[in-house]
Simulated assay, not measured.
Amino acid sequence: MKAANLHLELPTLTPKAEALRQEVRAFIAEERSSGRLPPPRRIGLGFDKDMSRRIAQKGWIGLTWPKQYGGQERSALERYVLNEELLAAAVPVGAHWVADRQSGPVLLKFGTDAQRRFYLPRIAAGELTFSIGMSEPESGSDLASLKARADKVDGGWRLNGRKIWTTNAHHAQYIIVLARTSVAEGSRHEGLSQLIVDMTSPGISISPIVSMAHEHDFNEVLFEDVFVGDDALIGKEGNGWNQVSAELAFERSGPERWLSSFRLISELVDVLGPDVRPSSLEELGRLISHLLSLRQLSMSVASMLQQGKSPNMEASIVKDLGTKFEQEAVRVVRNIVSAEDLIANGRAERLRALLIHAQQYAPAFTIRGGTNEILRGIIARGIGLR
């Protein structure tokens, strides 16, 4: 058994990061006072193209990217502070979230210069929405079992297959699809490639998946003989698995993995009066202590990304703990609301609306971005248990 190799540093935020925090809070306060950002009644990222454009005008999309591609060349921890504030205030960031969080960084790390020059400035301007084409029907979290194929043809590839849980694919201009481009004997992970697909291409059909929270975020996307040009290949043909592994570190480690339900906790704190029961305070205190611990873990992964590392195992730990915390948060808030009788007779309507939505949304926490079972397999391999 090899020795465990888990290393999480506790970073210190710089004065620049704290100054940015104040800028973001001032922006949020202005958006609230203008009426453009009403207090939330639902959890989750939300989707608002106009809000994304206003955030882009502040230079806050692609914050860490080179200036030549529309970025600001700021640190990963500064980006962390930015997103922490936006998420804690329930600012709707879904229109640019995937492109900023992972599609852009994947292009920056593996893409051609032409791809970077075309896509990155448009993402940074808040003009482009990207979707993720990884998961497939009947594959569960076994991503390597995917059936989507891209066969080589003159000038490009012919793509066939299905992708599921493609968040905001019905809004997106582009989707990055992981498909099998060749077969390697004895390995399911080799022979996979990533392709940038224009969502207006002939042969693409989008079917909505409506959640039990009555929301249409997810979709199933069908690709039937979709032509994708040679210039759409990201990185090397057959290197898709390594690229996706690096990409998932961006997806799994961010503050959205423990801040999705933060607004529910915040609203509860606002509603609680001075005569709260000691048992309720104890539960709430325990929850907040867990939240602060997760924040430190998540910030440490941001620090590793800043150093150019690919903390896939560490990100999996944050995601596993974070999604369990989010489900626990819903349970704890529900218990306190019931014990304190906070929403009877029409009181605390916003808390009631947030709690109802959170209870409907909570089952998705441990599924999105990889199920906890898959994440624990990654962690076990990382520390030498498998």
Rank of each mutant, 00 (worst) to 15 (best):
R188T: 10
V337H: 00
R350A: 10
A232D: 02
I374L: 13
I317D: 03
L385S: 08
V106S: 03
N239P: 04
E256I: 00
P208S: 08
M199A: 10
V197A: 00
E78I: 02
R54Y: 01
K58W: 10
R117Y: 08
R334N: 11
A4K: 12
L385K: 09
I209A: 06
H171R: 12
Q360V: 05
D225A: 14
I367S: 00
R376M: 14
A95Y: 02
G322F: 00
N219K: 01
D341G: 13
L284E: 02
I28A: 03
P38R: 14
L233I: 08
T323H: 00
E220V: 08
R42S: 11
R352V: 07
S260F: 06
L292P: 00
G370I: 06
L128Q: 01
P40G: 04
F130R: 01
L385F: 01
F365E: 08
I176Y: 06
E247H: 11
E267R: 10
T112S: 15
L13Q: 02
G126Q: 04
S289L: 15
E247Q: 14
G191I: 10
A99E: 05
V226A: 06
Q327N: 13
W157Q: 05
A89S: 15
L342P: 06
I265L: 15
L375N: 03
A125E: 11
I61N: 01
A144V: 14
E237S: 14
H171Y: 13
G156M: 07
L268M: 06
S316E: 00
P274K: 02
P363W: 03
Q173I: 08
S135P: 02
L45Q: 00
F223N: 01
L108E: 09
E282C: 12
V153G: 07
D154N: 12
L292C: 08
R117W: 02
R53A: 15
V226M: 05
F227W: 12
L63V: 06
V24C: 08
A213G: 07
D230K: 12
G46D: 07
E267C: 12
E215A: 13
G235H: 10
L291W: 14
K58R: 15
E215T: 02
A19Y: 00
G70E: 03
F223Q: 06
T371S: 14
I378G: 02
V333D: 01
F325W: 11
V330K: 03
H357G: 03
E237M: 12
L195T: 03
L375F: 02
Y174F: 15
G70R: 02
N335C: 09
N83S: 11
D341F: 04
A344F: 05
A246F: 11
F130I: 05
G186Q: 09
Q194E: 13
E220N: 08
M51F: 08
T200M: 09
V333H: 01
G346M: 09
A213D: 09
L351P: 09
Q296G: 10
L305C: 08
I317G: 01
V98C: 05
V269C: 01
Y80T: 05
